[in-house]
Design a protein around this nucleic acid. Structure first.
Lengths: 205, 205, 205, 205
DNA sequence: CGGTAATCGAGACGGTACGTCATGTCTTACA
DNA sequence: TGTAAGACATGACGTACCGTCTCGATTACCG
């Protein structure tokens, strides 16, 4: 949950309904994938979850935060936490993005993500939350892969890992968001190959 | 203009008011940059342009299409049509993206672009228009740069130009959209360097 | 025509198109009977008449005046000018209202008339026109019938003919406007009988 | 109120704001009398009532139905429910129409009523509502007066009461709607006298 | 016979109201 | 105190019709 501090001892009054929270996130997630953020409206989430609108607004400050929570929660349940360690940068990246890619294609994630990104532009606080909840976890895991490559001396110590991350995620999300070209295995493979080639070539420089 | 075919001989009836169209696009563009797509509302555009809402809807089917038209028109007026030719792939790309970058920073373009991209996810027809009007023109110009490099033999004949384009535009737009790291000159420079290095290193492979 | 003074000698410039005027009145009349005043819109009249909106507004100051003109013109073509003279008040009235009644039922006149009456409440000038063009001609003709009855001594010299007219036309139009009861022959007959009975009974008073 | 069934036990959810409903009907009624139906617009009613447009549309399906409700409600509050019983048909009718007449003149009712009647011609469902809400209540009360006269034997058993009602209301509303002659006491008196005379004279027939 | 002028078709325009929809808040009764 | 039900304010949406306007094209007369 995003919204409230964890229960410490035992709060007074009727306890928060766990069932309701699950139902809300589930319904929100479903609607999000069906139509995207702009079509996920709170009244509909409430109806599908068998819950009142007030209950939703009690725990999430806006529909966008709810959407982010639903989306990230869903993503977390289907995505492995651990980065693979195959022994080489190339191998690790291929493995990691193979999985990432599969998840991306399993759900119409572009619709959701562009909506969240758009809202983040208009709301600083939400932007922070969005990066924390979706972007950074992915980057951290991938950063570890580069760290291992640095430790192994595969890439030069001054390699700009942050830029490499942007090349990887940026190009993938670009195709996802803009839809101008297919998101196939060949593309994912080629992106990784080119980024690795770039970093390695600069090693000798 | 998006909406009408060019004048052929002499159209019957009262001619479309050039002044009104300019004013509408101008007002829309202003509002777009001030607040972003979601805050640009048609009544306000009409008021600022000194025009009636009906006139807007006569020529643009929705506020999003108007926004796209205003944004692309604005972009076209400030953006050079020609790709530079410095004699080398590296030089051409640096030059091109230096300009692109400057334009990006001259206006709060992120808010607008994410808004348009988000809407494109919900509206197929609009997505087509969006790519045609914003995305493709940029890619075409950059593709020419790669073509010249291919002609000069700087990069291998089988180099995947489309992927290179996605690496370039994807990573730049990624930072613009997600806002997780600064959009500085160093970054723009590094992206181009890495992409060129990648393509060249694979030449020798 | 309502709108312009008659041509005196020969006006300069292109003469008014007789064909267009007929087509406009015809189209307006058709639409009026089909749907009533509120559904008769000027653009549609123009389209049906194969005429431009500007031409309509050149000759009629508003859609209501056009409607009144179309309605009254239509009514005049189907309605006999002369009042019958059967020799008795009762006979004359039955004859007159038999015809009036038949016309009323031949066309969905209620839809049109209520619209015009409603507009007359909001527009003094139009109200004047409306009475002049529709109401008074009918009353004048019926007044003649009463005058003959007075001349014959059928009804007392102090009989209030104006009230009698209101009883006759008022009750008929009431059913037409409100639609709470059928507009059958029995009703028309009974109305005339009661009014004649009332006037005659007061003779003896 | 038109819209909802009466409260049974205790309804769930936030109860309908009684204050808002009163304010809406009041504002609508005011505007109706000030300018007539066509000038009563929903946004203005909302503003005057200190209420949102959405609240109005929640309870009334169109501005016309709202207008009817406001008009009828207003009429009900100022109009006595009971028919007078003076012991004679003539007395009862004079008394009843004296009151009716006073109400009619107390407010610019013509504009409102013609507007409603005109709309009823274009909307079957509304027509039903209009008769139910405005027309029938008046006729029912007056029918009682005739019933008493029948019971007393003042008028023949086969007298057509419905036609008599149309003569009374029709002629009064005729002057109100068409405005061709004044709505004075003399007229109201004369109408009643003539109708009574007609019914009585046919008694002896 | 060419100029002048009113008229016409086409259709763009400003204005104004309509009715709909979604957000987020609030007010009840019940658990 | 939490929750379901649902009323409410706010504010934008896109549509429709009105009456005005601006063109070019047409059709008379008048000099």
């Amino acid at each position: 949950m995003i919204s409230k501090a964890p229960v410490q001892f035992q709060r007074r009054g009727r306890p928060r309904s766990e069932r309701a929270q699950q139902a809300i996130l589930g319904a929100a997630s479903d609607l999000l994938y069906e139509q995207g953020l702009s079509a996920m409206n709170v009244a509909l989430v409430a109806e599908r979850a068998g819950v009142s609108k007030a209950t939703i607004y009690r725990w999430w400050p806006s529909k966008e935060v709810l959407a982010l929570d639903a989306f990230a929660t869903d993503w977390e349940t289907i995505s492995p936490v651990q980065s693979p360690d195959t022994g080489s940068l190339r191998g690790d990246l291929h493995e990691r993005f193979r999985i990432f890619w599969r998840l991306m294609r399993a759900r119409p994630v572009g619709r959701v993500l562009t909506g969240l990104a758009a809202h983040a532009q208009a709301d600083q606080e939400f932007a922070e939350l969005y990066r924390e909840r979706f972007l950074e976890p992915r980057r951290i895991a991938t950063r570890e892969i580069f760290q291992r490559a640095l430790d192994r001396g595969e890439i030069p110590a001054d390699a700009d890992v942050e830029v490499a991350l942007d090349l990887l995620y940026g190009s993938l999300l670009h195709r996802l968001f803009q839809g101008h070209a297919p998101l196939d295995d060949h593309f994912a493979h080629e992106v990784v190959e080119l980024v690795v080639a770039a970093l390695e070539s600069r090693t000798s420089a």
